[in-house]
Design a binder for these strands. Structure first.
Length: 375
DNA sequence: CGCGACGGACCTTTTACGTCA
DNA sequence: TGTGACGTAAAAGGTCCGTCG
């Protein structure tokens, strides 16, 4: 998707300002993170990359900033490998205190299951009856399922892990307990994807060293008494939700961007029309050199060139306030009308643009104009 | 070194279930 | 009590990448 805003003249002779918001949609993330694509980042990070053929004009960023808008939105919390791993306190690759505490709890759980592997498997119909402290008791059903998964042995394929339960069996949806969701959420904050490598967290805590599959997925599944497939599905769904939310945020931001740029475009068109009207004024204005005008970079007022202004300052000094010399762009339409010969005329364009430009974008605060460089 | 098979991880879409107003 | 909206677990199909023979 490409939002294009053309500012200025359509003809090639004039310098038109082409604004584009490159919005990559699709399989954008692949290849950028050196591995498989992070689709969540694909919608967000791709916008940064803006992989268009032509080099990105600097005006894009500067204009966005000049519009008082930041990109990406500050609320951007996009998952994905390229943008993931914000500085959080929780690190699954380290041993948090709670996890360390849970290690011993898990050991106790293991002992309990070894004594009675099927304990309580059918005693509860609700998957949410996780009464008790996490993770020692994450719900009997979940525990039973975890035990069943371990009893059946880990499949090399995560998809196959469910096949042993019988494909004909009705798909039973279970609700993860709050504790399980919270723990998975913490893991997701750290890494939106499951780390296939050996988890240093597991090694550090060494409570899963005998698992034989020291991966994050297996570790989480083991700790939460879920099947690895469940952990995998949860992460997939969580990434999808994150991406969806991020897409909504980005869409809203782009909408505001488009509105702001449209307004800026309208304003610039108006200025162009006013300048054209001035250009078609009597020849008196025409022999003013173009270098007469200069823009104050700090306050964006148009100032007259000192040398040029000096040569033309004499008539200006004779122009009293309230005459055409003090007219600003606010009423430049009236200025555009050719003054009758003999009327006092402005000495330069500087007076015409002496007033501070009005920016319709209310979100953009303007710094106060330094008095030294301004008219 | 190039190539195809394979496994693993991920993404997107869809389905189905549980909850709640 | 029935119902629709919503959240979410789960599955299916596809893609990509690394590994191996």
């Amino acid at each position: 998707m490409e939002l294009g805003l053309s500012l200025g003249e359509p003809d090639a002779g004039r310098a038109g300002l082409e604004l584009g918001l490159g919005l990559g949609v699709g399989d954008a993330g692949r290849g950028e993170d050196g591995g498989r694509g992070s689709g969540a980042a694909g919608a967000g990070a791709r916008w940064w990359a803006a992989p268009v053929a032509e080099p990105e004009p600097a005006v894009r960023l500067s204009l966005l900033s000049s519009l008082g808008l930041q990109w990406p939105p500050a609320s951007s919390d996009c998952g994905g490998r390229s943008s993931e791993a914000p500085a959080r306190g929780f690190d699954v690759n380290r041993a948090p205190s709670s996890a360390a505490a849970s290690a011993s709890a898990f050991a106790a759980l293991e002992d309990e299951e070894e004594e009675d592997p099927g304990a309580g498997a059918l005693s509860s119909s609700s998957p949410n009856d996780s009464a008790g402290s996490f993770p020692l008791d994450l719900g009997r059903r979940a525990r039973a399922e975890g035990a069943a998964a371990r009893a059946g042995g880990e499949r090399s394929s995560s998809r196959a892990s469910d096949e042993d339960e019988g494909a004909s069996a009705a798909r039973k949806k279970l609700r993860l307990s709050k504790e399980q969701s919270a723990f998975l959420e913490e893991s997701f904050k750290e890494h939106s994807t499951l780390n296939p490598e050996t988890s240093t967290y597991c090694i550090a805590t060494s409570f899963l060293t005998d698992v034989g599959e020291p991966k994050q997925k297996a570790a989480l599944a083991k700790q939460l008494n879920l099947r690895p497939r469940q952990v995998e599905v949860w992460f997939q769904n969580r990434r999808a939700r994150t991406k969806l939310k991020q897409t909504e945020v980005d869409c809203e931001y782009l909408k505001r961007c488009c509105e702001a740029l449209t307004e800026e475009n309208r304003r610039l068109h108006k200025e162009i029309a006013e300048l054209r009207a001035l250009k078609s004024a009597p020849p008196f204005y025409m022999h003013l050199p173009a270098t007469t005008l200069s823009m104050c970079p700090s306050c964006e007022r148009v100032a007259s060139n000192p040398t040029s202004a000096a040569s033309t300052s004499a008539p200006a000094s004779s122009a009293p306030p309230g005459t055409a010399a003090s007219v600003t762009t606010a009423n430049s339409n009236s200025v555009a009308a050719a003054p009758a010969r003999g009327e006092p005329l402005p000495s330069s364009f500087a007076a015409l643009f002496a007033a501070t430009r009005s920016f319709p974008l209310g979100s953009q605060p303007r710094p106060p104009a330094p008095a030294s460089n301004c008219l």
